[in-house]
Amino acid sequence: MSITVEDVSKIANLARIDVPEAEKPHLAGQLSGMLKFVEQLNEVNTEGVQPMTTAAQMKLPRRADAVTDGGYAGDLLANAPEATGNFFVVPKVIE
């Protein structure tokens, strides 16, 4: 599978990254190379093998249903570019 310039534009848009037009062919080549490298895995027969989502030999840790956190709006907002009345303030976004 190879990545086209259109694919690069779409991925960049989804990731909200501004990629200059001139750089796209170069990036398409690089991304294609990465995919090709990973495609070597297709040589292994995985018939009947469950997809593996982790290699960690442990169980998912659980927490009890108790309120143990929160109550520090000031800390959360300390690095926000803009805040008012303990709200984050962002440029207007309406879909």
Partner: peptide
């Protein structure tokens, strides 16, 4: 639930803005 799905912050309705938020 009392707390959120993946954090210990309160899941109760109607708190002051950003008062029931963990990192």
């Amino acid at each position: 639930s009392k707390a959120k799905l993946f954090s210990g912050a309160s899941a109760t309705f109607g708190g002051d803005p950003n008062s029931q938020v963990s990192f």
